[in-house]
Simulated scan of single mutants.
Amino acid sequence: MTRITVICNDSDYFLRHRLHVVERLSATGADVTVITGGRPMAKPTAGWRHEHMPIERFSFHPVLDAKVIRRSLRHFRTEKPDAVHLITLKPAVLSGLAALLARRLGNGPRRILVTIPGLGRLMSPSSTRQRTADRLARSMVDASIRFLSSQAGVHFTFETAEDRDDWLNRGLIGRHNSTVISGAGVDPERFYPAADSRVRSPVRILFASRLLKAKGLDAFVETARHYSGNRKVEFLVAGMVEPHDPDRYAPELLEREGAIKFLGEVSDMPGLLRSVDLVCLPSRYGEGIPRILIEAAASAVPCLTTDLQGCREIVRHGVNGTLIPPGDPGAMAASMIAAIDGYLADPELLDRQGRAGLELFRNGQFREDAVTEQFVRLLIDEGRAAGGSKPAALLPG
């Protein structure tokens, strides 16, 4: 039986984006343990185990990070997994180091799979972080990733070719040990178009993401204020509260904001998408492929988003949505207002772009089952190869 450990920095992210991979691994007969930071999860019922491990998500903290390394090392030496899947940057650096230490001690995982969903606010080439501490953190991460990549049986996955190319050009990884997998996958049995494709009145515009300024929520609210009192358009905000993120947008401000309707966390996202006409995500930092944009395409809803690498993977300007340049909130709001005015002047454009987005989804590698099988192959098939006498046969780029 193949033993696999999955480590992710946040339980909410894991449940939304990676649960289906673990369920598929378990269905193959693998013995899977999931370790997450963030909020403790309810006891799983699908044949895999869960452990909670505090992980500081928003900065590098010497004491807390050392505890993550120690606890990861203890887990690897006790449970002896054949493969580990490290999701997001912190687990890659900290638990990746622990996995290599466990190898040196004679019982570490043969296969180490690192998934970088997006380069984020620290590692993105467009990052505006210039503090000395941030530059030092980037240098430490670079050195750690470069060392990890040099070891046998280590493989990296990215959601966009541009993110992968950035790390290739910086010499952090190799072309032979990295792969691009299109997002986390969306299930078309859950996300599908509304039966009635008629454009509604008012036109309903949805922001659905984490409640962060870096996600463009400040620009979205400024845009909504421009249309305050206009009965032809309605602005909705749905998303998770990030109480410890310094970039958070306070939910109490959204509740008092008269220009938008604040929905909070929504459990029925497929149903919500079938009730709106346009999804808006004016993000300003290093995304992977934002899941909400893939869900919108599967639901035949056009998107208004930023001209950044991850967003461009699923949104084609003028085809299934509109791309606007990144910038300060005021400039982005002006671009969004111009785009929304165009949609209001030609409401049928929403329907045409929605249908084009559905076609892009169906023709791309965005289905949940396709994404899942790529991870299963990397963790199980390639992991078995890594355990043999020859080096693992790593997937081509």
Score class of each variant (00 low, 15 high):
Ile145Met: 12
Gly310Val: 12
His20Ala: 04
Leu278His: 03
Val84Ala: 12
Ser275Gly: 10
Arg175Ala: 14
Asp31Trp: 04
Asn107Ala: 15
Val114Pro: 00
Tyr192Lys: 13
Ala338Asp: 10
Phe361Trp: 00
Gly288Ile: 11
Ser149Met: 07
Val22Ala: 13
Pro282Met: 11
Ile292Leu: 06
Glu368Met: 12
Val315Met: 01
Leu73Glu: 07
Leu73Val: 04
Gly239Ser: 09
Gly310Met: 14
Gly29Ala: 09
Leu86Cys: 09
Ser299Phe: 00
Asp341Ala: 02
Ala137Trp: 02
Glu159Tyr: 10
Ile260Phe: 06
Tyr13Phe: 11
Phe361Cys: 01
Ser95Arg: 13
Gly108Phe: 10
Arg104Lys: 12
Phe156Asn: 06
Val141Lys: 05
Asp163Met: 10
Asn320Asp: 15
Leu148Thr: 04
Phe147Tyr: 14
Asp65Tyr: 06
Ala66Lys: 01
Glu368Phe: 05
Asp307Ala: 11
Asp82Leu: 02
Leu100Arg: 14
Glu295Arg: 09
Glu255Met: 06
Pro251Thr: 03
Ile4Thr: 12
Lys67Met: 11
Gly357Cys: 05
Met123Asp: 06
Ala214His: 05
Leu148Gly: 04
Val319Gln: 13
Leu100His: 01
Ile289Met: 13
Val276Thr: 14
Met53Asp: 01
Ala345Lys: 08
Arg377Met: 09
Leu211Met: 04
Pro91Asn: 11
Arg384Tyr: 14
Asp187Ser: 03
Ala238Thr: 06
Ile112Leu: 08
His176Trp: 03
Tyr13Lys: 06
Ala333Tyr: 07
Glu79Asn: 10
Asn363Asp: 15
Arg77Gln: 05
Asp351Ile: 00
Val21Lys: 09
Leu308Phe: 03
Leu15Asn: 08
Asp307Ser: 08
Gln151Leu: 03
Arg225Thr: 14
Pro290Leu: 15
Gly106Leu: 05
Asp268Gln: 05
Ile87Phe: 00
Pro193Cys: 08
Lys67Val: 00
Asp247Glu: 05
Val199Ser: 10
Gly118Met: 07
Arg367Gln: 09
Val63Glu: 08
Val21His: 15
Val376Ala: 12
Thr132Gln: 07
Leu168Thr: 05
Lys90Cys: 05
Pro202Ser: 10
Gln374Cys: 00
Asp341Ser: 02
Ala42Tyr: 04
Arg312Ala: 07
Leu25Gly: 04
Thr306Tyr: 06
Leu263Tyr: 10
Ser127Glu: 08
Ala143Glu: 07
Pro188Arg: 13
Asp10Ile: 05
His317Ala: 08
Val84Met: 06
Asp12Gln: 09
Val32Trp: 03
Val32His: 03
Ser182Ile: 03
Pro329Met: 02
Gly383Gln: 04
Phe262Glu: 05
Arg225Ala: 07
Pro54Ala: 04
Ser389Thr: 13
Ala356Gly: 01
Gly330Met: 06
Arg352Glu: 12
Val279Trp: 00
Val376Thr: 05
His61Leu: 02
Arg225His: 13
Lys43Ile: 01
His226Asp: 02
Pro347Met: 01
Pro202Gln: 07
Lys232Asp: 14
Asn320Pro: 10
Val241Trp: 11
Gly318His: 13
Val315Gly: 07
Pro125Met: 03
Ala331Val: 11
Ala385Val: 01
Pro329Glu: 12
Ala161Trp: 03
Pro109Asp: 04
Val237Cys: 05
Gly318Ala: 11
Ser182Leu: 11
Val241Ala: 05
Ala184Gly: 10
Leu272Gly: 12
Val233Trp: 12
Ala133Glu: 04
Gly96Asp: 08
His52Tyr: 10
Arg121Pro: 02
Thr88Tyr: 13
Arg198Cys: 12
Pro44Tyr: 08
His85Leu: 15
